[in-house]
Design a binder for these strands. Structure first.
Lengths: 214, 214
DNA sequence: GTCTATATTTCGATAGAC
DNA sequence: GTCTATCGAAATATAGAC
């Protein structure tokens, strides 16, 4: 009764189960951490949301903090990928416009991840401080150089690139982090048309504000 | 041995002690709730920060939730008072500019209150939902009408007033809520000059974005 | 790899002396 | 009004059978 041979390139059955369960737990954790914060979230709540016994969570993630760390890293990587939208064009209106579009789309598709990030940063970034000092700082400096080049070419007005980036982050993520407040004032969740309008307004006001469009 | 007569208009000694201790506890609670969220905060931490025994907190505030509610209401009232800055002028550049100035000043002076508000809204506003549906909604609708009048007069471009308000809230509060991220990228806390520049950039880009200034 | 039962810690809240 | 000691509930984490 030997084990049947297995293609080493294909993940083992055990690995498959692990990946599937980790993804299940991470999705549940993202939702619970977003709804309750780190302190307010309980492993029991996450387990219930994932439909697993609480002990299984500790089998896949040693501690509550490990699980939380993975959730925060996830949204950060999604934003980094979207940041490439800024390189789609030499035209600042198109490049920056595409970045705003991408960030707004993520606010709609991943509001929970955005909230967990906001929670983490608001509380001093105890878990991802090193990301801020390395990856995010490098990325930011690169974009600042790019915006400064546009200014030097006279394609946008001489604004402070750093604060433009902050304004883009603030406005786009506001639609995720403060989505409940916006929905309340809107008397209901935003429709497709509402999101289209929000995206257009943010793009238009910011791009006109820096002189990228008339 | 009768008690000495007391001027009824002046608060009693007991009332004075109560008010002083409540203020002390509220200040400590604002800081701890901002740093740890509602769930992450503990009455012990707040007591230590206030320099009082834990039992005294329960003497002044029946429950942890009562204490939290008071902290959230405080920042909301501060913002409402500052909102009057928008009525300083019939000129949209001056009126909206003054509102942005006031909001930025509060982000600097009350960053913890802003964070607690963000925490509360991000988690579905379980405590101040009624404020959103009454006071904030009324205030918002009033400002929308005012901005629409400016549009009708041709003094600003035909943007969506609601989303302009969201952008003002998002950008100004970002400097409080994400202050840690900004300080990290800035390699240190913002100086007076940094705050002046941030305020000017936000004002300029938003006001130019809506056509209130050339 | 799964799950029940439980150990251990911590927190919110209170009792009661001063 | 203040403070020490403590209760009872709830949380994280683990042990151990399956």
């Amino acid at each position: 009764m030997n084990e049947s041979p297995r293609d080493p390139a294909r993940p083992s059955r055990r690995t498959e189960i692990r990946q599937a369960n980790e993804a299940l737990i991470l999705a549940a954790a993202e939702k619970v951490f977003a709804e309750a914060g780190f302190g307010g979230a309980t492993m029991q709540l996450i387990a219930d949301m994932a439909g697993l016994p609480k002990a299984n969570l500790h089998y896949y993630f040693a501690t509550k903090e490990d699980l939380y760390r993975r959730v925060v890293q996830n949204i950060f990587e999604i934003w980094l990928e979207a940041a490439e939208a800024m390189d789609t064009s030499d035209d600042p209106a198109l490049g920056i416009g595409a970045y705003i579009e991408a960030k707004m789309a993520i606010s709609r598709s991943h509001p929970d991840g955005s909230k967990v990030w906001a929670y983490e940063v608001m509380h001093g970034a105890p878990v991802i401080q090193d990301y801020l000092e390395t990856t995010l700082r490098d990325w930011t400096n690169g974009r600042i150089a790019r915006i400064e080049a546009w200014i030097a070419e006279g394609r946008i007005r001489p604004i402070a690139p750093r604060h433009l980036l902050y304004m883009i982050w603030a406005t786009t993520q506001h639609y995720a982090d403060f989505g409940h407040q916006i929905a309340t004032l809107n008397r209901g969740p935003l429709s497709d048309a509402d999101w289209r309008q929000a995206t257009d307004e943010v793009k238009t006001i910011l791009l006109r504000g820096i002189g990228a469009i008339p």
